[in-house]
């Protein structure tokens, strides 16, 4: 009798593992090809020249010299690309994130019209970046843009550069930053709003009874309670910094000093040019990016543990 049941048990166990491994089969193959395999092929390619011969660290050398401005490369706009990519981080951490945190808090507190705001402020997340970029482009366009028209009508027409705001190397990057503030807050708000909606009412209620002002509740209760979400969002900002390129691609295509690291990689990959250079660049980014991301994750977790509630 015992033998039968153990046999049955064994058979069930085998069937379980068969199911598990069948489910995992394709995801694991996919991971091996696209995460491990592609990273290995990127590393190999970074040590080769255009005809697949071993090239030592020359690609790395040219990445570093190009972006330090020591040697000029005709196809890559340097060293602004690195500077531009780095400027995305303070923008998203110090401007986008505080704004979206405050907005989510005010919606959470339901001062007024919170339903309206919680729909309208999420609009940019559901609209294509293409549409947003085209709208922005047309709004600041030199000939027909309404922002240019407004400036002209109040006598500030001389501020508009001859090639338009997005065509002038002095103003273009600032307008791209403006665009990313305008569209960047709503994605964060989804995460913050849903995190705040999970905070139990009674905790906030007790703080209110104790007489804590709303602003104080925000800093002493809300922020610690959603610290986990804040950490996650910061991580995506930090790891996303190097891969940030879409607005630059659509608004200016990298002209007028608006290139970024991500854009250099994408444009060259798509055109199949400078592939070894791009791979060396990719390896450096992957290393630096994951060190910074994981390091700051550690730091943020040590700085403030997520409060259990």
């Amino acid at each position: 009798m015992e033998k039968v049941s153990s046999k049955k048990f064994m058979r069930a166990k085998i069937r379980d593992s068969l199911f598990v491994y069948l489910v995992l089969l394709w995801p694991v193959i996919h991971f091996c090809i696209f995460s491990i395999g592609m990273n290995i092929s990127m590393i190999i390619s970074s040590f080769q020249d255009a005809s697949d011969r071993f090239y030592g660290f020359n690609n790395y050398r040219s990445v570093i010299t190009t972006f330090l401005g020591l040697s000029a490369s005709s196809t890559l706009e340097n060293p602004r690309a690195i500077l531009n990519s780095l400027s995305i981080l303070p923008l998203s951490l110090l401007i986008d994130m505080p704004i979206s945190l405050l907005f989510s808090y005010v919606i959470y507190k339901k001062y007024c019209a919170s339903k309206f705001f919680s729909v309208v402020l999420f609009i940019p997340t559901v609209i294509s970046a293409v549409v947003l970029c085209l709208c922005f482009k047309m709004a600041v366009s030199r000939d027909f843009g309404f922002i240019t028209q407004i400036l002209q009508s109040i006598g500030l027409g001389h501020l508009v550069p001859a090639n338009g705001f997005l065509g002038d190397p002095k103003t273009a990057w600032w307008f791209i930053l403006l665009f990313s503030i305008w569209t960047g807050i709503s994605t964060n708000m989804i995460y913050f709003s849903s995190a705040m909606s999970r905070i139990s009412e009674s905790v906030i209620e007790s703080a209110r009874i104790d007489g804590a002002s709303d602003l104080r509740q925000f800093f002493t209760m809300i922020i610690p309670m959603i610290w986990g979400t804040i950490t996650t969002v910061s991580m995506t900002c930090i790891s996303g910094m190097f891969g940030w390129y879409l607005p630059a691609l659509l608004l200016t295509n990298g002209t007028a000093n608006t290139s970024t690291i991500g854009l250099v990689i994408i444009i060259n990959s798509q055109a199949r040019t400078n592939l070894n250079f791009v791979s060396a660049f990719g390896v450096l980014i992957a290393i630096i990016g994951s060190v910074i991301t994981l390091g700051s994750k550690r730091l943020m977790e040590r700085f403030w543990r997520d409060v259990e509630y």
Binding site: F31, I33, F34, S35, G37, M38, N39, S41, M42, S45, M235, S239, F242, G243, G262, I265, I266, N268, S269, Q270, R272, L275, V278, S279, F281, G282, V283, I285, A286, G289, S290, T293, L294
Partner: peptide, 19 residues
């Protein structure tokens, strides 16, 4: 790992793989 490591650098490899 998939979520943490920047993947943008592998774009060139993926494209040549598809080629």
């Amino acid at each position: 790992m998939t979520m943490c490591i920047p993947t943008i650098g592998t774009t060139a490899s993926v494209l040549t793989f598809y080629d």
